[in-house]
């Protein structure tokens, strides 16, 4: 039986073939989909903030790009994945609202989340093989452990697979 596992905000999950990971309504958060194509182990993290070091309230490690990706990698290794084979697909990081030029740092949080995600993946030497980030709209994603494909659905901006 194929299961669909939901990943909430500030959450991460790992599945093996043939299960599917999904996150609904990704906005300024970033979804990081890691995959080992040989063992067919798939992991999805849904991060909210770029950096755990800058925030006092940092007990939930799945909330931050820097710590969530490390945990996701470890969890996937526990399920039999090899870190050296892992590839990444990233999505989300939208700017849902804008206030003209007076945009504070907080308004650019989607962009900052994307940058921090890339830096962490770079540090862990996990190549980013596909990306669909930015814009001003939400995304619902489905990540298939048997193919490594990431399906992205939007309202008014079409459906695509990366």
């Amino acid at each position: 039986m194929q299961g669909i596992i939901k990943v909430g905000m500030a959450d991460l999950k790992v599945v093996k073939e043939p299960d599917i990971l999904t996150t609904l309504g990704l906005g300024s958060c970033v979804g990081i989909a890691l995959y080992d194509r040989i063992r067919k182990v798939a992991g999805l993290a849904h991060i909210m903030l770029p950096d755990s070091c800058q925030i006092k309230n940092n007990t939930n490690k799945a909330k931050f790009a820097d710590t969530a990706i490390e945990i996701l990698v470890n969890e996937m290794v526990k399920q039999g994945a090899s870190e050296s084979r892992m590839t990444a697909k990233i999505t989300g990081g939208s700017q849902m609202f804008s206030f003209g030029n007076s945009g504070s740092d907080l308004m650019k949080i989607g962009y900052r989340n994307t940058i921090a995600t890339k830096e962490t993946l770079n540090r862990l030497k996990i190549p980013i093989i596909a990306e669909d980030t930015g814009g001003n709209y939400g995304r619902t994603i489905e990540f298939y452990s048997y193919t490594g494909e990431l399906l992205i659905k939007t309202i008014g901006y079409g459906v695509k697979t990366i």
Partner: peptide, 27 residues
């Protein structure tokens, strides 16, 4: 209050904005 900014989209995506703000301090 600043000028308003409107967004019509999925609830999850829109809520991510206040959620992110809250999450810096609260869960």
């Amino acid at each position: 209050l600043s000028i308003p900014s409107l967004c019509i989209d999925m609830a999850g995506a829109i809520l991510s904005v206040p959620a992110i703000q809250f999450s810096q301090t609260f869960d």
